[in-house]
């Protein structure tokens, strides 16, 4: 475990120095600032706009980090052959993958926590602690979404070029969010093939639609405990599945 943590710490330090991290943080802070300005325009909807944009900022930051680092991280290690020295040590390929993923997840955690603190401050939730639980659940769902996308992007990067892995990861992000709408249309449609396709998509894609709570509505009305448990199970299952698949693929990969 110590070896995995040593690799995770190194990965985290590397990521913190990457330009993409600074760009993502700036975009997220820009969105938060924008939400504050937009909220100020409308007195009645100020809180709603602030919450919606604030959660969107956190999602964009996590999406950017997870997809970009996931797509390029292992590909860069293999292309630059920096992994050779690491793997020549008593470190298995699985430990290497776990260390890398853990490092990025640590970065995502830092990002969520710091942006969440800013958003709590902007929403004035310190004075309304009754909303803090649903706020934490929304942030957790966004963190898990990032974890699943990170795993998917790394997995794809072992099969195709990083830019295609990035595209595939983004496609799964969209697909995951469209699953609810697609199911709705499938129910309305009489087309059997369309219904079948939607069923298949449900099996091959994580369902981000059902864990999409990033709005003032869920913040104020809370999220049913059953939904939160479903989200935890679904996202953990998908994350573990893609990590296992990634480990399996990486074990078989020739580092030429």
């Amino acid at each position: 475990m110590f070896k995995v943590l040593a690799l995770a710490r190194t990965t985290l330090r590397e990521m913190l120095r990457e330009k993409v991290f600074m760009v993502v943080v700036l975009i997220a802070l820009g969105l938060l600032g924008l939400s504050f300005l937009l909220g100020a325009l409308s007195l009645a909807e100020q809180r709603k706009i602030l919450a919606d944009f604030g959660f969107l900022a956190i999602q964009v930051a996590l999406l950017g980090i997870s997809l970009f680092t996931g797509s390029y991280m292992l590909a860069k290690e293999i292309e630059k052959q920096t992994c050779l020295l690491i793997l020549s040590r008593p470190v298995s390929r699985a430990q290497f993958i776990f260390g890398k993923i853990l490092g990025v997840l640590a970065l995502n955690t830092i990002l969520v926590v710091s942006l969440a603190i800013v958003l709590i401050f902007l929403l004035g939730l310190f004075e309304q602690p009754q909303y803090l639980l649903s706020f934490a659940e929304i942030c957790l769902s966004l963190w898990f979404e990032g974890a699943v996308l990170l795993g998917l992007a790394i997995c794809f990067s072992l099969i195709v070029r990083p830019v295609l892995a990035l595209g595939a990861g983004f496609m799964f992000f969209l697909l995951g969010h469209w699953l609810g709408d697609l199911q709705f249309f499938a129910q309305k449609s009489q087309e059997e093939s369309f219904v079948l396709i939607v069923k298949v998509l449900h099996w091959i894609s994580p369902n981000f639609y059902r864990m999409n709570w990033k709005s003032a509505y869920f913040l104020e009305n809370g999220i049913p405990a059953g939904n939160v448990l479903w989200m935890l199970g679904h996202a953990t299952g998908w994350t573990l599945l893609v990590i296992l698949l990634t480990t399996f693929l990486f074990r078989r990969k020739d580092i030429v």
């Binding site: 190194t10 590397e14 120095r17 052959q81 020295l85 040590r89 008593p90």
Partner: peptide, 21 residues
């Protein structure tokens, strides 16, 4: 194996290292 690896030192061709360290 892991114990064997601790007894070996290795330097690849054109070593690219973690330059932020």
């Amino acid at each position: 194996s892991s114990p064997i690896k601790t007894r070996i030192g290795y330097l690849p061709e054109r070593p690219y290292l973690y330059e932020f360290l």
